Amino acid sequence: MGLGGCILLIGAGAILAFATDWHMDTVNVGMAGWIMMVVGVIGVFVYASVMRRRRMVVPPTTTVVSDDERRL
């Protein structure tokens, strides 16, 4: 699940938790919204940690030439 999917989960969960007044006998809609928001936030943190590992920059190894070697 990418970053867009996580943000979509957070938004849909917030709508279910705060902006609806549905009452169902089998499903607590408010609790389902909170669960969706928590899963979305966890997904954002996991996505950020994975992308941080992928984008680590390793400096290239270069040989250092001293002034003594240039004069030869």
Rank of each mutant, 00 (worst) to 15 (best):
M1L: 10
M1D: 09
G2W: 03
G2I: 06
L3S: 04
G4T: 06
G4A: 12
G4P: 07
G4V: 10
G5N: 03
C6I: 01
C6E: 06
C6Q: 00
I7G: 00
L8H: 05
L8C: 01
L8Y: 12
L8M: 06
L8T: 05
L8K: 09
L9F: 11
I10Q: 06
I10S: 07
G11K: 03
G11M: 04
G11W: 05
G11P: 00
G13N: 02
G13R: 07
A14G: 09
I15Q: 06
L16V: 00
A17K: 08
F18I: 10
F18L: 07
F18W: 09
A19E: 14
A19H: 13
A19R: 14
T20R: 10
T20C: 08
M24R: 08
M24F: 15
M24I: 05
D25R: 11
D25V: 12
D25F: 14
T26K: 05
V27A: 00
V27S: 10
N28W: 08
N28D: 15
N28F: 10
G30N: 15
M31H: 11
A32H: 01
A32T: 12
A32W: 00
M36I: 02
M36Y: 05
M37I: 11
M37A: 05
M37L: 03
V38L: 12
V38F: 07
V38T: 09
V38D: 03
V39Y: 08
G40M: 03
G40P: 06
V41K: 08
I42D: 03
G43N: 09
V44M: 13
V44D: 00
V46I: 11
V46A: 00
Y47D: 02
Y47T: 08
A48G: 04
A48K: 09
A48W: 08
S49W: 10
M51E: 13
R52W: 08
R52V: 05
R52A: 14
R53D: 06
R53Y: 06
R53I: 02
R54G: 12
R54D: 01
R54C: 07
R54L: 13
R54W: 05
R55K: 10
R55P: 04
M56Q: 14
M56T: 11
V57A: 04
V58G: 00
P60E: 01
T61H: 10
T61A: 14
T62C: 02
T62R: 09
T63L: 15
T63S: 14
T63C: 13
V65G: 05
S66P: 13
S66T: 15
D68E: 14
D68N: 08
E69S: 01
E69T: 03
R70Q: 07
R71T: 07
R71E: 11
L72Y: 01
L72M: 04
L72G: 09
